[in-house]
Amino acid sequence: MTQIAQPSPTAAPSFRRSPAIEVSGLVRTFQAGQKTIRAVDGVDLQVESGSIYALLGPNGAGKTTTISILTTLIPPTSGLARVAGYDVVKDAAQVRRIIGATFQETVVDKNLSGRDALDTHGRLYHLPKALIKSRIEELTRLVELEDAIDRPTKTYSGGMKRRLELARGLMTAPQVLFLDEPTQGLDPQNRDRIWTYIRQLRAEQGLTILLTTHYMEEAEQLADRVGIIDAGRIVQSGTPAELIGALGEDVVTILGDGNTPNFLESLRQQSYVDWASQYVSAAAEVEGTGEIAAATVQIGLREQAGKFLRPIVELAEGAGFKIADFSIKRPSLNDVFLKYTGRRLRD
């Protein structure tokens, strides 16, 4: 696992701004009957001030639990988490004063208007009335809800509710904004809008944002850094370019059946193969046939795939592996995810 170097304890104190979010060894367990579930199982991460960090992972990976701890909703079982230098347990009151958040579920009162929602939010944070009024104007303009702001939110579409929630999260000009699945279930148009607002906020106000998503594209489009989270741990992190670049030039995916270990072994001996792995759990359907392939093999190549197709097919035949399907593509975050978790991320 690669991580940003931690400042060593012996280093001289510097005047560098500390990271906006620092998390180390974070663990949160839940009791489900007799079983103890480790929803967050040792998460370490750092988010620099003014940057966007995306926690990318499937449902149940521990993203929402991590956000719940960072926003002081629930305490961690163990480990440390600081937001803007404040401990989320010991200084929870301070953390609450400087963060904003939107949650995975859409939570707005359907009988109250958008303005009511923003007004109540401003009051909860003890903002002066004049400031609440001017903030509502600004933010309504930002999220393009001018026409709807005085209507009950039950008349809003899903996308409008999301935009209202984003505005609510921004009401108090927070230093750190948490967005839990900000575009889940939205149509592409609304998703693009929200992405635009988020980029705008970072560019204009230097806002630090931690968002969770299970959309590859979202992480790729928005984040300065991506942390791939699976089963409560961050299995890999880096900039999207770094993560994808680390996969090599082209990725070949082969579905098939037969002597897989033998095939992998012979692949790994080739100079043009960077890495090769098998995903047992990802028994995938062979496109169009309805057949289930027994094994998925992925091969990261050091060069472009073209001239290696024939050698790979021959290797498979020689190793007793029957190829059912064969595909080549430029690696994406999807492949990064598959490589580090052994599973596909379902959009």
Binding site: R96, I99, F103, V107, H121, L124, R168
Partner: peptide, 12 residues
Amino acid sequence: TGIIKEYLIAPV
């Protein structure tokens, strides 16, 4: 519904 979360993370 989760509306309570808005209050629980507010400085209240």
